[in-house]
Design a protein around this nucleic acid. Structure first.
Lengths: 227, 227
DNA sequence: ACAGACCGAACTACACTGTAAACTTGAGGC
DNA sequence: GCCTCAAGTTTACAGTGTAGTTCGGTCTGT
Protein backbone atom coordinates (compact mmCIF):
# COMPACT_ATOMS: atom_id res chain seq x y z
CA UNK A 1 0.00 0.00 0.00
CA UNK A 2 1.51 3.24 -1.16
CA UNK A 3 -0.03 6.03 0.85
CA UNK A 4 0.40 9.11 -1.33
CA UNK A 5 4.10 9.58 -1.44
CA UNK A 6 5.85 12.19 0.58
CA UNK A 7 7.11 15.29 -1.13
CA UNK A 8 8.21 18.78 -0.22
CA UNK A 9 4.74 20.23 -0.71
CA UNK A 10 2.95 17.74 1.47
CA UNK A 11 5.58 18.03 4.18
CA UNK A 12 5.47 21.82 4.16
CA UNK A 13 1.69 21.83 4.32
CA UNK A 14 1.65 19.36 7.19
CA UNK A 15 4.24 21.37 9.06
CA UNK A 16 2.20 24.52 8.56
CA UNK A 17 -0.93 22.78 9.80
CA UNK A 18 0.95 21.47 12.80
CA UNK A 19 2.34 24.90 13.61
CA UNK A 20 -1.07 26.52 13.27
CA UNK A 21 -2.29 24.00 15.78
CA UNK A 22 0.53 23.64 18.27
CA UNK A 23 2.98 26.46 17.64
CA UNK A 24 6.36 26.40 15.98
CA UNK A 25 8.50 25.72 19.03
CA UNK A 26 6.84 22.39 19.66
CA UNK A 27 7.33 21.24 16.10
CA UNK A 28 9.90 18.49 16.02
CA UNK A 29 10.89 16.12 13.29
CA UNK A 30 9.51 13.17 15.20
CA UNK A 31 6.18 14.81 15.90
CA UNK A 32 5.87 15.89 12.30
CA UNK A 33 6.69 12.32 11.30
CA UNK A 34 3.90 10.79 13.32
CA UNK A 35 1.64 13.65 12.19
CA UNK A 36 2.34 12.54 8.63
CA UNK A 37 1.95 8.89 9.54
CA UNK A 38 5.54 8.24 8.65
CA UNK A 39 8.85 7.70 10.36
CA UNK A 40 10.66 10.90 11.27
CA UNK A 41 13.74 10.15 9.27
CA UNK A 42 11.78 9.84 6.07
CA UNK A 43 11.44 13.63 6.10
CA UNK A 44 15.17 14.02 5.60
CA UNK A 45 14.78 12.44 2.17
CA UNK A 46 12.91 15.55 1.06
CA UNK A 47 14.15 18.48 3.14
CA UNK A 48 17.65 19.05 4.39
CA UNK A 49 16.83 19.54 8.05
CA UNK A 50 14.79 21.46 10.51
CA UNK A 51 15.94 24.89 9.39
CA UNK A 52 15.18 24.09 5.77
CA UNK A 53 11.80 22.74 6.84
CA UNK A 54 10.85 26.01 8.51
CA UNK A 55 11.99 27.82 5.40
CA UNK A 56 9.66 25.65 3.34
CA UNK A 57 6.82 26.55 5.65
CA UNK A 58 7.55 30.23 5.17
CA UNK A 59 7.69 29.81 1.43
CA UNK A 60 4.35 28.04 1.46
CA UNK A 61 2.93 30.75 3.73
CA UNK A 62 3.85 33.53 1.36
CA UNK A 63 3.23 31.65 -1.87
CA UNK A 64 -0.34 32.86 -2.03
CA UNK A 65 0.71 36.49 -1.83
CA UNK A 66 2.73 36.69 -4.99
CA UNK A 67 0.36 34.54 -7.03
CA UNK A 68 -2.32 36.53 -8.75
CA UNK A 69 -0.68 39.79 -7.89
CA UNK A 70 -0.61 40.97 -11.46
CA UNK A 71 -4.37 41.36 -11.48
CA UNK A 72 -3.99 43.88 -8.73
CA UNK A 73 -2.06 46.11 -11.04
CA UNK A 74 -3.34 48.89 -13.25
CA UNK A 75 -4.52 51.18 -10.53
CA UNK A 76 -1.80 53.25 -8.95
CA UNK A 77 1.28 52.46 -6.94
CA UNK A 78 -0.70 53.52 -3.88
CA UNK A 79 -3.37 50.93 -4.58
CA UNK A 80 -0.72 48.36 -5.38
CA UNK A 81 0.99 48.88 -2.04
CA UNK A 82 -2.34 48.74 -0.24
CA UNK A 83 -3.11 45.48 -1.96
CA UNK A 84 0.16 43.81 -1.05
CA UNK A 85 -0.08 45.06 2.50
CA UNK A 86 -3.52 43.58 2.96
CA UNK A 87 -2.53 40.30 1.38
CA UNK A 88 0.36 39.92 3.78
CA UNK A 89 -1.80 40.99 6.69
CA UNK A 90 -4.27 38.27 5.76
CA UNK A 91 -1.50 35.71 5.99
CA UNK A 92 -0.36 37.04 9.35
CA UNK A 93 -3.86 36.88 10.75
CA UNK A 94 -4.72 33.51 9.33
CA UNK A 95 -1.47 31.96 10.60
CA UNK A 96 -0.52 33.89 13.72
CA UNK A 97 1.56 31.04 15.12
CA UNK A 98 3.55 30.60 11.94
CA UNK A 99 3.98 34.21 10.93
CA UNK A 100 6.67 35.07 13.52
CA UNK A 101 8.96 32.73 11.61
CA UNK A 102 9.65 35.65 9.27
CA UNK A 103 12.10 37.05 11.80
CA UNK A 104 14.41 34.10 11.29
CA UNK A 105 17.11 35.00 8.88
CA UNK A 106 17.04 33.72 5.34
CA UNK A 107 20.16 31.56 5.25
CA UNK A 108 21.11 32.33 1.67
CA UNK A 109 20.37 36.06 1.68
CA UNK A 110 20.87 37.88 4.96
CA UNK A 111 20.11 41.23 3.35
CA UNK A 112 16.50 40.30 2.65
CA UNK A 113 14.19 42.21 4.93
CA UNK A 114 11.37 40.42 6.71
CA UNK A 115 8.49 40.07 6.49
CA UNK A 116 8.85 40.19 2.70
CA UNK A 117 11.24 37.31 2.27
CA UNK A 118 10.13 36.09 -1.07
CA UNK A 119 12.56 37.13 -3.79
CA UNK A 120 9.84 36.91 -6.42
CA UNK A 121 7.69 39.27 -4.41
CA UNK A 122 10.59 41.67 -3.87
CA UNK A 123 11.33 41.63 -7.59
CA UNK A 124 7.67 42.25 -8.38
CA UNK A 125 7.48 45.12 -5.91
CA UNK A 126 10.63 46.85 -7.08
CA UNK A 127 9.82 46.43 -10.74
CA UNK A 128 6.25 47.64 -10.37
CA UNK A 129 7.20 50.74 -8.41
CA UNK A 130 9.75 51.53 -11.06
CA UNK A 131 7.17 51.11 -13.78
CA UNK A 132 4.98 53.60 -11.96
CA UNK A 133 7.79 56.06 -12.49
CA UNK A 134 9.28 56.27 -9.03
CA UNK A 135 12.99 57.06 -9.09
CA UNK A 136 15.32 54.29 -8.03
CA UNK A 137 16.33 55.64 -4.64
CA UNK A 138 12.68 56.23 -3.83
CA UNK A 139 11.84 52.66 -4.84
CA UNK A 140 14.36 51.29 -2.39
CA UNK A 141 13.14 53.72 0.25
CA UNK A 142 9.59 52.53 -0.18
CA UNK A 143 10.64 48.90 0.00
CA UNK A 144 12.45 49.50 3.24
CA UNK A 145 9.79 51.65 4.88
CA UNK A 146 7.15 49.20 3.78
CA UNK A 147 9.10 46.32 5.28
CA UNK A 148 9.55 47.82 8.69
CA UNK A 149 5.97 49.06 8.79
CA UNK A 150 4.59 45.61 8.02
CA UNK A 151 7.10 44.00 10.35
CA UNK A 152 6.08 46.11 13.32
CA UNK A 153 2.35 45.97 12.82
CA UNK A 154 1.90 42.40 11.71
CA UNK A 155 4.30 40.81 14.15
CA UNK A 156 2.52 42.53 17.01
CA UNK A 157 -0.84 41.60 15.64
CA UNK A 158 0.20 38.00 15.12
CA UNK A 159 1.66 37.76 18.59
CA UNK A 160 -1.57 39.09 19.98
CA UNK A 161 -3.73 36.73 17.95
CA UNK A 162 -1.47 33.75 18.49
CA UNK A 163 -1.12 34.20 22.22
CA UNK A 164 -1.92 31.00 23.99
CA UNK A 165 -5.52 31.47 25.16
CA UNK A 166 -4.83 29.06 27.99
CA UNK A 167 -2.10 31.33 29.36
CA UNK A 168 -2.11 31.49 33.11
CA UNK A 169 -2.09 35.29 33.43
CA UNK A 170 -0.40 34.78 36.75
CA UNK A 171 -0.57 37.33 39.46
CA UNK A 172 2.46 39.25 40.55
CA UNK A 173 0.90 40.29 43.81
CA UNK A 174 1.99 37.75 46.35
CA UNK A 175 -1.38 37.80 48.05
CA UNK A 176 -3.85 35.45 46.49
CA UNK A 177 -6.43 38.25 46.63
CA UNK A 178 -8.98 37.34 44.00
CA UNK A 179 -9.10 40.96 42.83
CA UNK A 180 -11.04 40.82 39.56
CA UNK A 181 -8.72 43.29 37.89
CA UNK A 182 -8.67 43.59 34.13
CA UNK A 183 -6.36 41.29 32.19
CA UNK A 184 -5.05 38.98 34.89
CA UNK A 185 -4.30 41.17 37.86
CA UNK A 186 -0.92 42.82 37.50
CA UNK A 187 0.63 44.91 40.26
CA UNK A 188 -2.21 47.36 40.55
CA UNK A 189 -0.51 49.56 43.10
CA UNK A 190 2.89 50.23 41.62
CA UNK A 191 1.50 50.87 38.14
CA UNK A 192 -1.71 52.84 38.64
CA UNK A 193 -1.69 54.46 35.23
CA UNK A 194 -1.48 51.11 33.51
CA UNK A 195 -4.40 49.96 35.58
CA UNK A 196 -6.42 53.08 34.92
CA UNK A 197 -5.90 52.85 31.19
CA UNK A 198 -6.36 49.10 31.12
CA UNK A 199 -9.71 49.41 29.45
CA UNK A 200 -8.26 51.37 26.58
CA UNK A 201 -5.12 49.27 26.47
CA UNK A 202 -6.83 45.97 25.93
CA UNK A 203 -9.12 47.32 23.26
CA UNK A 204 -8.12 45.75 19.98
CA UNK A 205 -7.76 48.48 17.40
CA UNK A 206 -5.14 46.70 15.31
CA UNK A 207 -7.03 46.87 12.05
CA UNK A 208 -7.83 50.54 12.41
CA UNK A 209 -4.25 51.35 13.33
CA UNK A 210 -3.01 49.28 10.44
CA UNK A 211 -5.10 51.24 7.96
CA UNK A 212 -4.15 54.56 9.48
CA UNK A 213 -0.46 53.74 9.57
CA UNK A 214 -0.46 52.41 6.03
CA UNK A 215 -2.25 55.51 4.79
CA UNK A 216 0.19 57.75 6.62
CA UNK A 217 3.15 55.94 5.13
CA UNK A 218 1.79 56.30 1.64
CA UNK A 219 1.01 59.97 2.22
CA UNK A 220 4.54 60.47 3.37
CA UNK A 221 5.89 58.88 0.21
CA UNK A 222 3.64 61.06 -1.91
CA UNK A 223 4.83 64.19 -0.17
CA UNK A 224 8.39 63.06 -0.58
CA UNK A 225 7.77 62.48 -4.29
CA UNK A 226 6.41 65.93 -4.89
CA UNK A 227 9.30 67.69 -3.21
CA UNK B 1 36.83 28.59 48.73
CA UNK B 2 33.72 30.52 48.01
CA UNK B 3 33.89 31.83 44.50
CA UNK B 4 31.58 34.84 44.48
CA UNK B 5 28.19 33.34 44.98
CA UNK B 6 25.71 33.01 42.19
CA UNK B 7 22.71 35.27 42.04
CA UNK B 8 20.12 36.34 39.53
CA UNK B 9 22.09 39.43 38.49
CA UNK B 10 25.32 37.62 37.84
CA UNK B 11 23.54 34.87 35.93
CA UNK B 12 21.59 37.32 33.81
CA UNK B 13 24.72 39.29 33.00
CA UNK B 14 26.64 36.17 32.06
CA UNK B 15 23.77 34.98 29.89
CA UNK B 16 23.66 38.36 28.16
CA UNK B 17 27.40 38.27 27.56
CA UNK B 18 27.12 34.76 26.20
CA UNK B 19 24.27 35.73 23.88
CA UNK B 20 26.15 38.78 22.64
CA UNK B 21 28.98 36.47 21.79
CA UNK B 22 27.32 33.32 20.48
CA UNK B 23 23.66 34.13 19.88
CA UNK B 24 20.59 33.20 21.85
CA UNK B 25 19.76 29.92 20.15
CA UNK B 26 23.04 28.34 21.20
CA UNK B 27 22.61 29.34 24.82
CA UNK B 28 21.97 26.26 26.89
CA UNK B 29 21.92 25.75 30.62
CA UNK B 30 24.99 23.57 30.47
CA UNK B 31 26.99 25.99 28.37
CA UNK B 32 26.00 28.86 30.63
CA UNK B 33 27.06 26.74 33.57
CA UNK B 34 30.55 26.15 32.26
CA UNK B 35 30.64 29.81 31.18
CA UNK B 36 30.02 30.70 34.80
CA UNK B 37 32.48 28.13 36.04
CA UNK B 38 29.71 26.27 37.78
CA UNK B 39 27.62 23.16 37.33
CA UNK B 40 24.60 23.72 35.12
CA UNK B 41 22.09 22.66 37.71
CA UNK B 42 23.20 25.33 40.13
CA UNK B 43 21.48 27.88 37.93
CA UNK B 44 18.10 26.40 38.74
CA UNK B 45 18.53 27.54 42.33
CA UNK B 46 18.22 31.13 41.16
CA UNK B 47 16.05 31.12 38.04
CA UNK B 48 13.11 28.86 37.33
CA UNK B 49 14.19 27.60 33.95
CA UNK B 50 15.35 28.53 30.51
CA UNK B 51 12.37 30.69 29.71
CA UNK B 52 12.72 32.61 32.94
CA UNK B 53 16.42 32.99 32.26
CA UNK B 54 15.77 34.65 28.92
CA UNK B 55 13.26 36.88 30.64
CA UNK B 56 15.95 37.92 33.10
CA UNK B 57 18.24 38.77 30.22
CA UNK B 58 15.55 40.95 28.70
CA UNK B 59 14.95 42.67 31.99
CA UNK B 60 18.64 43.36 32.34
CA UNK B 61 18.78 44.60 28.76
CA UNK B 62 16.06 47.15 29.31
CA UNK B 63 16.97 48.09 32.85
CA UNK B 64 19.23 50.87 31.67
CA UNK B 65 16.46 52.49 29.67
CA UNK B 66 14.10 53.28 32.49
CA UNK B 67 16.83 54.32 34.91
CA UNK B 68 17.63 57.98 34.69
CA UNK B 69 14.68 58.67 32.49
CA UNK B 70 13.31 61.35 34.77
CA UNK B 71 16.19 63.63 33.89
CA UNK B 72 15.02 63.51 30.31
CA UNK B 73 11.80 65.15 31.32
CA UNK B 74 10.93 68.81 31.33
CA UNK B 75 11.16 69.40 27.63
CA UNK B 76 8.12 68.31 25.70
CA UNK B 77 6.40 65.05 25.06
CA UNK B 78 8.01 65.11 21.64
CA UNK B 79 11.47 65.31 23.14
CA UNK B 80 10.54 62.69 25.71
CA UNK B 81 9.47 60.22 23.02
CA UNK B 82 12.61 60.95 21.01
CA UNK B 83 14.69 60.27 24.09
CA UNK B 84 13.08 56.93 24.88
CA UNK B 85 13.26 55.88 21.25
CA UNK B 86 16.97 56.57 21.06
CA UNK B 87 17.65 54.84 24.34
CA UNK B 88 15.93 51.70 23.15
CA UNK B 89 17.67 51.93 19.80
CA UNK B 90 21.00 52.08 21.60
CA UNK B 91 20.15 48.84 23.35
CA UNK B 92 19.13 47.20 20.09
CA UNK B 93 22.35 48.23 18.41
CA UNK B 94 24.62 47.35 21.28
CA UNK B 95 23.04 43.92 21.70
CA UNK B 96 21.78 42.88 18.27
CA UNK B 97 21.90 39.19 19.08
CA UNK B 98 19.90 39.58 22.29
CA UNK B 99 17.40 42.19 21.17
CA UNK B 100 15.21 39.84 19.10
CA UNK B 101 14.25 38.19 22.36
CA UNK B 102 11.69 40.95 22.75
CA UNK B 103 9.37 39.11 20.41
CA UNK B 104 9.00 36.27 22.89
CA UNK B 105 5.83 36.67 24.80
CA UNK B 106 5.89 37.85 28.38
CA UNK B 107 4.41 34.88 30.19
CA UNK B 108 2.60 36.84 32.88
CA UNK B 109 1.36 39.66 30.66
CA UNK B 110 0.58 38.67 27.09
CA UNK B 111 -0.95 42.06 26.41
CA UNK B 112 2.39 43.83 26.78
CA UNK B 113 3.63 45.00 23.43
CA UNK B 114 7.25 44.45 22.48
CA UNK B 115 9.76 45.93 22.39
CA UNK B 116 8.66 47.85 25.48
CA UNK B 117 8.25 44.92 27.83
CA UNK B 118 9.15 46.67 31.04
CA UNK B 119 6.07 47.50 33.07
CA UNK B 120 7.92 50.30 34.82
CA UNK B 121 8.76 51.85 31.49
CA UNK B 122 5.19 51.50 30.26
CA UNK B 123 3.90 53.11 33.42
CA UNK B 124 6.41 55.93 33.06
CA UNK B 125 5.47 56.49 29.44
CA UNK B 126 1.73 56.50 29.99
CA UNK B 127 1.94 58.72 33.07
CA UNK B 128 4.27 61.22 31.43
CA UNK B 129 2.20 61.56 28.30
CA UNK B 130 -0.81 62.15 30.48
CA UNK B 131 1.00 64.80 32.45
CA UNK B 132 1.79 66.55 29.21
CA UNK B 133 -1.93 66.86 28.76
CA UNK B 134 -2.63 64.26 26.12
CA UNK B 135 -6.11 62.77 26.38
CA UNK B 136 -6.32 59.15 27.49
CA UNK B 137 -7.25 57.61 24.18
CA UNK B 138 -4.41 59.51 22.54
CA UNK B 139 -1.99 58.27 25.17
CA UNK B 140 -2.85 54.69 24.40
CA UNK B 141 -2.68 55.41 20.69
CA UNK B 142 0.79 56.83 21.06
CA UNK B 143 1.94 53.88 23.11
CA UNK B 144 0.73 51.47 20.48
CA UNK B 145 2.06 53.37 17.47
CA UNK B 146 5.33 53.87 19.25
CA UNK B 147 5.60 50.16 20.00
CA UNK B 148 5.04 48.97 16.49
CA UNK B 149 7.33 51.62 15.03
CA UNK B 150 10.19 50.64 17.33
CA UNK B 151 9.43 46.99 16.81
CA UNK B 152 9.67 47.20 13.06
CA UNK B 153 12.70 49.40 12.82
CA UNK B 154 14.80 48.02 15.62
CA UNK B 155 14.15 44.37 14.97
CA UNK B 156 15.20 44.80 11.37
CA UNK B 157 18.21 46.83 12.36
CA UNK B 158 19.22 44.29 14.98
CA UNK B 159 18.81 41.41 12.56
CA UNK B 160 20.98 43.25 10.11
CA UNK B 161 23.64 44.07 12.67
CA UNK B 162 23.53 40.66 14.29
CA UNK B 163 23.69 38.69 11.08
CA UNK B 164 26.44 36.16 11.24
CA UNK B 165 29.33 37.79 9.36
CA UNK B 166 30.61 34.32 8.50
CA UNK B 167 27.39 33.54 6.65
CA UNK B 168 27.98 31.58 3.47
CA UNK B 169 25.93 33.81 1.13
CA UNK B 170 25.45 30.75 -0.98
CA UNK B 171 24.70 30.96 -4.64
CA UNK B 172 21.38 29.92 -6.04
CA UNK B 173 22.74 29.63 -9.53
CA UNK B 174 23.67 26.00 -10.00
CA UNK B 175 26.75 26.95 -11.99
CA UNK B 176 29.74 27.64 -9.84
CA UNK B 177 30.39 30.75 -11.94
CA UNK B 178 32.47 33.02 -9.74
CA UNK B 179 30.38 36.02 -10.80
CA UNK B 180 31.45 38.78 -8.43
CA UNK B 181 27.92 40.05 -8.00
CA UNK B 182 27.04 42.31 -5.09
CA UNK B 183 26.05 40.67 -1.82
CA UNK B 184 26.63 37.01 -2.53
CA UNK B 185 25.41 36.30 -6.03
CA UNK B 186 21.70 35.56 -6.06
CA UNK B 187 19.77 34.50 -9.17
CA UNK B 188 20.83 37.41 -11.31
CA UNK B 189 18.69 36.44 -14.27
CA UNK B 190 15.28 35.82 -12.84
CA UNK B 191 15.39 38.92 -10.63
CA UNK B 192 17.02 41.62 -12.70
CA UNK B 193 15.50 44.54 -10.83
CA UNK B 194 16.86 43.26 -7.55
CA UNK B 195 20.23 42.97 -9.16
CA UNK B 196 20.07 46.40 -10.72
CA UNK B 197 19.10 48.03 -7.46
CA UNK B 198 21.50 45.95 -5.42
CA UNK B 199 23.78 48.89 -4.84
CA UNK B 200 21.00 50.94 -3.33
CA UNK B 201 19.56 47.97 -1.49
CA UNK B 202 22.63 47.11 0.46
CA UNK B 203 23.28 50.70 1.46
CA UNK B 204 22.72 50.97 5.18
CA UNK B 205 20.45 53.93 5.83
CA UNK B 206 18.90 52.55 9.00
CA UNK B 207 19.76 55.49 11.20
CA UNK B 208 18.49 58.05 8.73
CA UNK B 209 15.28 56.10 8.18
CA UNK B 210 14.85 55.73 11.92
CA UNK B 211 15.06 59.47 12.45
CA UNK B 212 12.74 60.21 9.55
CA UNK B 213 10.18 57.65 10.62
CA UNK B 214 10.25 58.78 14.23
CA UNK B 215 9.80 62.39 13.19
CA UNK B 216 6.93 61.46 10.91
CA UNK B 217 5.22 59.53 13.67
CA UNK B 218 5.50 62.45 16.04
CA UNK B 219 4.23 64.85 13.39
CA UNK B 220 1.26 62.61 12.83
CA UNK B 221 0.46 62.64 16.53
CA UNK B 222 0.73 66.41 16.62
CA UNK B 223 -1.62 66.76 13.69
CA UNK B 224 -4.00 64.35 15.32
CA UNK B 225 -3.86 66.38 18.54
CA UNK B 226 -4.73 69.65 16.85
CA UNK B 227 -7.75 68.26 15.06
C1' DA C 1 32.67 27.06 71.21
C1' DC C 2 29.76 23.97 69.51
C1' DA C 3 25.54 21.62 67.49
C1' DG C 4 22.31 21.76 64.37
C1' DA C 5 19.67 23.93 60.75
C1' DC C 6 20.17 25.40 56.26
C1' DC C 7 21.18 26.23 51.66
C1' DG C 8 23.81 26.53 47.54
C1' DA C 9 26.31 23.52 44.45
C1' DA C 10 26.96 18.98 42.42
C1' DC C 11 25.45 14.47 40.81
C1' DT C 12 22.26 11.27 38.77
C1' DA C 13 18.56 10.21 35.90
C1' DC C 14 15.07 10.66 32.23
C1' DA C 15 12.56 12.01 28.35
C1' DC C 16 13.19 14.35 24.25
C1' DT C 17 15.68 16.66 20.50
C1' DG C 18 18.27 16.77 15.55
C1' DT C 19 20.74 14.06 12.57
C1' DA C 20 23.97 10.52 10.49
C1' DA C 21 24.60 5.78 9.00
C1' DA C 22 23.13 1.30 7.98
C1' DC C 23 19.33 -1.49 6.82
C1' DT C 24 14.80 -3.11 4.59
C1' DT C 25 11.43 -3.10 1.15
C1' DG C 26 9.03 -2.74 -3.04
C1' DA C 27 8.40 -1.17 -7.85
C1' DG C 28 10.37 -0.83 -12.71
C1' DG C 29 13.62 -2.14 -16.33
C1' DC C 30 16.70 -5.71 -18.69
C1' DG D 1 14.44 -14.23 -13.31
C1' DC D 2 17.52 -10.69 -11.29
C1' DC D 3 19.47 -5.74 -10.67
C1' DT D 4 18.93 -1.16 -9.41
C1' DC D 5 17.59 2.37 -6.99
C1' DA D 6 15.00 5.31 -4.29
C1' DA D 7 11.66 5.78 -0.39
C1' DG D 8 10.92 4.51 4.14
C1' DT D 9 12.68 2.24 8.60
C1' DT D 10 15.71 1.10 12.28
C1' DT D 11 19.41 2.00 15.18
C1' DA D 12 22.60 4.98 17.25
C1' DC D 13 24.68 9.07 19.35
C1' DA D 14 25.54 13.47 21.20
C1' DG D 15 23.20 17.29 23.20
C1' DT D 16 19.09 19.43 25.39
C1' DG D 17 15.90 20.98 29.65
C1' DT D 18 14.80 19.70 34.04
C1' DA D 19 13.23 16.85 38.37
C1' DG D 20 15.10 14.44 42.43
C1' DT D 21 18.64 13.54 45.51
C1' DT D 22 23.04 14.09 47.93
C1' DC D 23 27.10 16.51 49.74
C1' DG D 24 29.73 19.98 52.06
C1' DG D 25 30.38 24.13 53.91
C1' DT D 26 28.30 28.49 56.36
C1' DC D 27 25.45 30.69 59.59
C1' DT D 28 22.86 30.90 63.89
C1' DG D 29 21.19 29.96 68.66
C1' DT D 30 22.76 28.90 72.78
Amino acid sequence: MVRTHLNRERIAQAALDFIDEHGSVSLSMRKLGTYLGVEAMAIYRHVEGREALLDCVLQRLMSGVVDGLDEALGQSWQGYLQDIAHRIRDVAIRHPKAFPLVVTQHPAAPWIRPPIRDLDLIEHLLRTLREYGLPDDMVVDVYQSFSSFLMGHLLLEAMHAGADPTAPATAIREEEAPAPAPFGRINLDTHPTVQELSGLLQRNTSEEQFEIGLEAMIDRIEANLRS
